[in-house]
Design a protein around this nucleic acid. Structure first.
Lengths: 213, 213
DNA sequence: GTAAAATTTTAGATTAATCTAAATTATGAA
DNA sequence: TTCATAATTTAGATTAATCTAAAATTTTAC
């Protein structure tokens, strides 16, 4: 996907956030949100369609490409917000406008390394979910390993990280997606946990690892 | 100073870096560097002068405002490079283009907090000096406390930080600008140092503090 | 001191992103 | 179903930043 201007990116994000359950929104809604004239929006809609970011010439529905772009921008926005709060000690109310600028910085390597440094956060400081690099939102019903109840049975459905290394590490430890497990012991002082997998294998994980489930 | 576009900022930075000993450069040099047509540069020069960023209508000399803007951009650029290398583990050859984007993010609060987090670095990963927030470059002949030789007498001329808190802290410890001191002991294992100030007072500093001289 | 070469500026066009005003097209209520 | 209102699109202008081509100016070399 080639680079889009910040303006185009802002339109796509706005359209994404205004879409109803049918994945649709209107020219006037976008105009209102961006405080632009409807004529400007109408014009931009044509150009977004030419770029392949909208499904339809006149309907405001994001294409697959447009949808992915929106989610990747939201990902970057929320990662930067997390960075600003956790690392630079901003308050969560202060970070929106700065992240709004930072999200337009284009660098695949940076977008890859920021979440590594932040330990693959699933939620931003406002509590909003951070899409993974493929644009998938974390399962809101999923429970992180650190919050699993002792002796309650769970199914291993996802990891919080998009680093394939991490999944490889778990596989090497004998933990596969889809397996059932429960926490048998929880060490309060260092946050480490002991798991029983498939009723027969025991594995220990440090808190750092546990946070990535 | 009101916000300038990234384009304007890039012109100012380019002019700054091309200026000769008389603080002057040429349309063609800027055109060459930016890979723009000389006609475009000529046009922009008029606009930069209208904005008060150039001294003269036709001569390419930065005004006081323009000069400060350039130094502040260089400051941001080098702080971001330092961040990328030290925090996100980039190699120093990889960071230029990313910093080129990050330097245009406008947020006084961010520009204030980034160097706090980085412990007020004086030099970027390429070894280039980082101007302070007033645009002053660190004295290239100055020696950081961490590199002071034991028993050699020095004069305390500057701190690496622009945080007034730090100077206040030093003053409270009895250390004033202009004073003579020498390192009497240097602890290799934790980088802490013992100073003899004015031949009569002893003070200890941790490595963190020492790095900020 | 003048003419050739280099540099700079002007003039006119282009593109992205915006605007206002006017025209067109949908929507929906009687 | 029709007509008033709301929504959208078109037409034409504007601004920032760029371009090419041509004109004007400045430098340099003899």
């Amino acid at each position: 996907m080639k680079n889009e201007s910040s303006t185009v990116e802002n339109y796509i994000k706005t359209i994404y956030s205004l879409c109803d359950k049918n994945g649709k929104t209107t020219v006037s809604a976008v105009a209102e949100r961006l405080q632009n004239n409807p004529a400007s929006v109408s014009n931009m809609v044509r150009r977004l369609h030419e770029k392949g970011l909208l499904e339809n010439k006149s309907k405001l529905i994001l294409s697959k490409e447009g949808n992915l772009l929106a989610r990747q921008l939201i990902r970057k926005h929320r990662l930067w917000e997390t960075f600003l709060v956790r690392v630079l000690n901003f308050k969560w109310e202060e970070v929106h406008d700065i992240a709004e600028q930072l999200e337009h910085v284009h660098s695949p390597l940076l977008t890859e390394r920021l979440p590594v440094f932040l330990k693959y956060p699933k939620f931003d400081p406002h509590g909003d979910p951070i899409p993974d690099k493929k644009g998938n939102l974390p399962d809101l019903n999923a429970i992180p390993l650190t919050e699993a109840e002792v002796d309650q049975l769970y199914i291993f459905r996802s990891v919080a990280t998009d680093k394939s290394d991490f999944l490889n590490y778990l596989n090497k430890k004998g933990l596969q997606l889809g397996q059932k497990w429960k926490v048998t012991e929880k060490e309060e002082f260092d946050g480490s946990v002991k798991l029983l997998i498939d009723e027969n294998r025991e594995v220990y994980f440090s808190e750092t690892v546990a946070q990535n489930f």
